[in-house]
Nucleic acid binder design. Structure first.
Lengths: 402, 402
DNA sequence: GACCTAAATATAAGATCCAAATAAATTCCG
DNA sequence: CGGAATTTATTTGGATCTTATATTTAGGTC
């Protein structure tokens, strides 16, 4: 009656239900015969399990005559499909300056997307949460859903996040970013570091057991996947890149700005160097305080020497990161993600020339993400789907009959 | 009849058997009532499963009257215990210059230990394997066992090892060290990197979800445990420390000797510096070619300035490693293992003074292993036990009746 | 020896799965 | 149109395993 404590005799049924549901997530519409092949169960058992899943609201039987491509002989098979109304998952990229949300069905198909700029420092924690609620509500409304349809929400924040979804107490910025979404969003809520979500997105798009994803626009964070698993660390600090400047300067004290991303670095370096640079540079035509990263990349494309020098510096920095990751963690692939990934290719090219070619140690591939600015939110969806697939029966579908 | 393909109906029994067996591994002798509490099953079920495990040879019923501390009322409970003769596990540290093996029972109690020096380069791969076979046979004979009693053997080698037990093809040294033990030892055989095994040993002794273990005598390797899991990397290369010299010299080409451990470094530096050093040093009393690491540590204890300087250099190196590991992987604890761990304390002390105290980032503890030179072989045993506990029913016990 | 207690057994019932037999639905073909 | 042929659904019986309940058993205590 209480359903929470699965007695040992029901365990088997639960295992089989989960397996069948996972199979259903991969198929559009399937027959008992196909499920038999996938699960190794008998036809009678499969049909029994399907019955249960239909009752529970996970599956629905397909009755319309669309039998395209069916075997022309014999009794027609009963066909099932995942019930669309069973629920949706929500991904949210809760960045410092914007919110992006995607609503997806349980197969991962994007149903709605909304994006909005915010001023986190003006809004505060509560304001960020309220903004997220509002944006998600809008996106749900776009597809005719409401909060009750959300099985699972995954939120990415630009702060280290431990396994319980909390950020280390030290930094006020981190507490602001990790705004307590889990208290105010519907369904099960998971908070995760944004770079980690970007890594999950890249990993899903091109599986590789050992890949690092550098989320590198304004701030710098890495999502590390080793042996196919995301690294977290006790306080969620895995993937911090502070060590770079610490080590290279041969001292152990961290210095200012070590968590700057490529975008921020390009801007800062340009503003500084444009003054001391002796040659001619098109960057001087821009007021110093208005120079931004895109200007630098643009100038480099046009052959500007100073801009190219900055690109080369970024490339050197990336090469050193790649060497450390490949050496210490046997990383095979380094992905640059975030909005800057669309322009990053020149940096990658320079970095590739710096990697030691014949040192015996395998070199990581350096590639740009194809997600652009949406890597985090896509990773959030992917993470939600992974959680759901791991144990579908832990969630309850939106009921068939009210 | 074939037993290999567990039909779905038998799955439940297998799950329960595994759970009960895991429980039995923790208890000396237990009653059905105790097992009921641990597994959540009914008495009848527990007794049924125990019956099966006795038949299979995993358990035996205890009949002697030793009822110390039993409840004085009611019908005496039947008592069971793990059958000692069910089998043993073997750990082997197959180092470059020595072999160490431990035979342990399924609870992890050490039954026999043997150690032997070898000349790997003279013996070759086949010779190493033969030596290991011989040594293990001796250790088994010490406790009245033979090869057939071995359920599982774990071998640690000083080379990167991938998930399939193979080392990258490049290095001839690695191929020599990873000598093909899995082909010639009894029972299931797992090959693992030695530093990884040392990490497993440290992790078992003092559980901490994020700990790095530096196996640092002659060669330098790290076993990394993050989020409670050992990192491997595709080619088993996780934990390589080459990046250190690469980064600090602000160039990307690796240089000679970067894989030297603290012992080797102390020796090399001492032999080099004793010539150029201007002050007085007791190390000059030793012929230059005979200076070894112990001499340096000894001289430092006696206050020798040059030796202390070398200790300080080692400490600096360690501090830099610690900062990188703590920053990049959120490592909480760094353990120095291997024979050198007994003398390493002064290096740790110096390293601790170098760690930035107020940088906001949590500092890792620096500690010396208490296993001395036996960390690897203890880790091998621990790894074997972990594998066994994960799925005991995957192994077959030594039969009750022949 | 009567009585108490906790555990072991015995018994019945429920859940689950499988294998085989049976029934149904559809196409093919004469 | 009606009967194979075919494929699937359903039913049935049996086996395994777990649970729940009742009964027996083995010790102790008074």
């Amino acid at each position: 009656m209480d359903g929470t404590t699965a007695s040992s005799t029901q365990l088997l049924r639960q295992i089989n239900s989960g397996a069948l549901l996972r199979f259903a997530l991969q198929e559009q519409v399937f027959t008992a015969g196909e499920a038999m092949g996938a699960t190794g169960l008998t036809r009678a058992t499969v049909l029994g399990v399907c019955d249960g899943l239909v009752d529970a609201g996970w599956l629905e039987e397909v009755t319309d005559g669309g039998e395209a491509g069916r075997a022309p002989k014999g009794r027609p098979a009963r066909r099932y499909q995942l019930r669309e109304a069973a629920g949706v998952v929500v991904g949210l990229d809760a960045g410092e300056g914007h919110l992006t949300t995607i609503v997806a069905d349980l197969r991962g198909r994007e149903l709605a997307k909304r994006r909005q700029s915010i001023d986190s420092h003006a809004l505060g924690r509560a304001g960020r949460v309220a903004g997220a609620q509002e944006l998600i509500h809008q996106a749900l409304a776009d597809v005719g859903c409401d909060s009750g349809d959300v099985l699972l929400t995954v939120v990415g924040v630009p702060a280290p996040v431990d396994a319980d979804g909390r950020s280390p107490g030290a930094g006020e910025f981190w507490q602001l970013m990790n705004s307590g979404f889990d208290q105010h969003l519907e369904g099960a809520v998971t908070i995760e570091n944004d770079a980690n979500l970007a890594a999950i997105a890249e990993h899903a798009q091109e599986p590789s057991a050992n890949v690092a994803t550098l989320l590198s626009g304004e701030r710098f964070g890495a999502g590390l996947i080793v042996d196919g698993r995301l690294l977290r660390g006790r306080r969620g600090g895995a993937g911090e890149m502070r060590f770079l400047d610490i080590l290279s300067d041969s001292k152990l004290e961290p210095e200012e700005g070590t968590s700057d991303g490529f975008g921020a670095l390009a801007r800062k370096w340009a503003r500084t160097l444009v003054r001391s640079y002796e040659g001619d540079t098109s960057l001087r035509r821009i007021p110093e305080e208005d120079i931004n990263a895109e200007d630098v990349f643009q100038a480099a494309r046009e052959g500007d020497a100073l801009a190219r020098d900055i690109i080369a510096r970024l490339g050197t920095r990336l090469a050193r990161i790649a060497v450390v990751l490949s050496s210490l963690l046997d990383i095979e692939r380094v992905v640059i993600a975030g909005g800057i990934s669309r322009a990053i290719e020149p940096v990658l090219e320079h970095a590739r020339t710096l990697l030691p070619a014949n040192s015996g140690l395998p070199l990581p591939d350096l590639v740009a993400s194809t997600f652009g600015a949406e890597a985090v939110v896509h990773g959030a969806i992917e993470s939600a789907l992974t959680q759901f697939r791991r144990d579908p029966t832990a969630f309850l579908p939106r009921a068939t009959r009210p």
